[in-house]
Simulated assay, not measured.
Amino acid sequence: MTPTELEAQIAALPKVVLHDHLDGGLRPQTVIELAADVGHDLPADGAEALATWFADSADSGSLPRYLETFDHTIAVMQTADALRRVAREAVVDLATDGVVYAELRWAPEQHLQRGLSLQETVDAVQVGIEEGVSVAAETGRGIQVGQLVTAMRHADRWTEIAELAVANRENGVVGFDIAGAELGFPPSRFPETWRYLADQNFPVTIHAGEADGVDSVAEAVHLGQATRIGHGVRILEDVVFDESTRTATLGPLANWVRDHQITLEVCPSSNVQTGAATSIAEHPINRLKELDFAVALSTDNRLMSRTSMTQEMTLLVQECGWTIDDLADVTLTAAWSAFIHHDERRALVDDVVLPGFQKIEGAQL
């Protein structure tokens, strides 16, 4: 199978993405047009040159440096019209890539510079999402999309943002997250936030185990009561491998995460860029999957990583020898881990994901 044929076959698969940042998935041309509207200077001219700048700048091996690229995307997402457009285009782009369910995460507190209130930002994004779903439907592509409202780790607004998320649970918000620089900003900064979310029976995912180690993951699952972990690849620091016997001994935290099937939202290309993995071929996702951790595949930031779900799947097939069964496994794990009710997850699996994979039953990737 040629690379083109392989990518075409993978593009036809149904996909579920749980970890996709709204401010990390803009179209380069959209960044240019929105920047012109608000007078924001960009580091490159033209869509192709700008796309290259984002990818090259993100490819630093450092999470803090990676996060600097967001200064430009956030700067152009400060009006209701801009938020609506970015959300609409994100949904359309994901649907075009074969995504049937997505959760878009973003931090409302970063979009207040031109006078919007927190609630107005949520409303604008929701309108954009609904518009995107309608546009996708017109082209014959069905997609379901929820918002993941995020608080920034270095700021002091965690409980306020958590309350915003809960207040909008009937307005498209499906869960809560904290993001940003992981090291030095653990969940224990604001333990009352997690107590509030638990009391409200509200779903939580937490970035952990990317730029910090097992202690970060431990706080996420025990204090934060997260049922999903953003990235989480450094949980392998709590696993001892004997290469001579091909056996692994899991430590207490690794056992806890695996025993409770806490989903790891793994983003291979992004992890290589930030230094959480050395390469796709040597990415921890392979060992995590072999050890029966609950692994879901995601994109993280499609602009910064110049990626898509089709691209992430293709890389794993080409560089790690993944098969159609492996792709089905991570897709089903993601679907069953979505922050929607059980009957909705069941419908997503039975009516959308499984039939989509069965259409190419016997395919040789």
Rank of each mutant, 00 (worst) to 15 (best):
L6A: 00
L6V: 06
E7T: 09
L22R: 12
D23S: 14
P28R: 07
E33N: 15
E48M: 05
A58Y: 00
S60N: 00
P64K: 00
V76G: 05
A82F: 06
V86W: 00
E89Y: 08
V99D: 13
W106S: 04
S117I: 11
V125Q: 05
V127W: 05
I129K: 06
E131S: 03
I143D: 04
I143H: 01
Q144H: 09
H154P: 02
T159I: 14
E163G: 04
N171T: 03
F176N: 06
D177E: 11
A179C: 07
E182T: 00
R189F: 05
V204D: 01
A211R: 10
G213M: 09
S216E: 09
T227A: 10
D242N: 15
A248C: 11
P252W: 03
R258C: 13
R258V: 12
Q261P: 02
N271M: 10
T274P: 03
S279K: 03
A281D: 12
A281V: 04
L291V: 13
D292Q: 07
D292Y: 03
A294V: 07
T299G: 04
D300P: 06
T307D: 08
S308K: 05
T323Y: 07
D326Q: 00
D329C: 02
L354H: 04
G356F: 05
Q364D: 15
